[in-house]
């Protein structure tokens, strides 16, 4: 709230009165909007530190007795810590594999000379149109025939596959803009083509790869539907699925659910504070994903 008043007070004093009144109005609007985003988060945070009685008796104020204990309990006893690292594992590994195979595939499509290259690109891009849901039943049937014994591999393969269309789209577009002389010079130096690719082209892909990393990491970190269907075992649950266990027991102890939500949100907020612009552009690059 203090930010808002401060900004209004600082508003540009130049210009005519009407202009500044309009500016003030804009700030009020922005302030109210920002408050509507931030206050619920703040409310969530303080409520998570209260016990059930205090949630009723002292809804607005800061917690009287700070019960950080609940975070410890949720993290260890209720295994949110493990959910967290499971998610990290699925997301990091699937992003790494995506980068590896998609940059090769995109290079082959754009630069190498073969008949079906255009057709293959189209085939990959078709994936942007397929809704997740229409793959669920067949994937489930296949996975259950395999016995659902390899939940980690299943999750990673699925995350990689769903990252491919978008990643190929972004990378292929970028590679088109790289001058051909780049890898030619490498080949003339005596490299084989794959070597020239890894040595010369791959390092140039840093900007689109940053986009792909952010977009796909968030995609798999935030996934619900696949883990809902493919993961039965508590042991392998990622964070999004894991924290749902507290919803059923919501009224028994509000702070369990609330602190679990905070834990699920904190990494996003932290990463966002550091990488703001990168994340904004990484996510909105998805705007091409019709």
């Amino acid at each position: 709230m203090s930010t808002r008043t401060a900004l209004v007070a600082n508003a540009n004093p130049q210009g005519n009165r009407q202009y500044s009144r309009l500016t003030a109005l804009k700030y009020v609007f922005l302030g109210v909007y920002a408050l509507a985003i931030l206050y619920p988060l703040f409310f969530l945070l303080i409520s998570s530190l209260k016990d059930n009685d205090e949630i009723f008796s002292n809804p607005w104020g800061l917690p009287i007795k700070w019960g950080l204990n609940v975070y410890y309990q949720v993290w260890t006893q209720y295994e949110v810590g493990r959910y967290f690292f499971n998610s990290l594992y699925y997301s990091l590994l699937s992003v790494a594999i995506t980068i590896f195979i998609c940059s090769m595939a995109s290079y082959a499509i754009v630069r190498m000379k073969w008949k079906l290259s255009k057709w293959t690109l189209g085939f990959f891009l078709l994936g942007l149109m397929v809704p997740v849901h229409s793959t669920l039943v067949p994937l489930y049937i296949t996975a259950s025939k395999l016995g659902l014994n390899y939940p980690r591999i299943t999750m990673i393969v699925i995350f990689v596959a769903f990252a491919i269309p978008f990643s190929v789209f972004v990378l292929a577009g970028f590679i088109q803009g790289i001058p051909k002389e780049m890898e030619e010079s490498g080949v003339i130096d005596g490299c084989s083509l794959p070597k020239a690719f890894w040595k010369i082209i791959f390092p140039l892909l840093a900007p689109p790869l940053a986009t792909i990393t952010i977009f796909n990491f968030l995609g798999s970190w935030n996934d619900l539907i696949f883990s809902l269907i493919f993961i039965n075992d508590e042991y392998y649950k990622p964070i999004q699925l894991g924290i749902m266990r507290f919803q059923g027991n919501f009224s028994t102890r509000y702070s369990f659910l609330l602190s679990a939500i905070v834990i699920a949100i904190v990494p996003s907020v932290a990463a966002y504070m550091v990488l703001q612009d990168k994340i904004v552009s990484g996510i909105t690059a998805g705007a091409v994903k019709g």
Binding site: F100, I156, K199
Partner: peptide, 24 residues
Amino acid sequence: MRRKLAVVLVSCLLMLLVAACDGG
């Protein structure tokens, strides 16, 4: 230097994959 990095990255990946296989 870069190649070394790539080798390290790839071997890390492979190790993680093995770990994933073991995940059963």
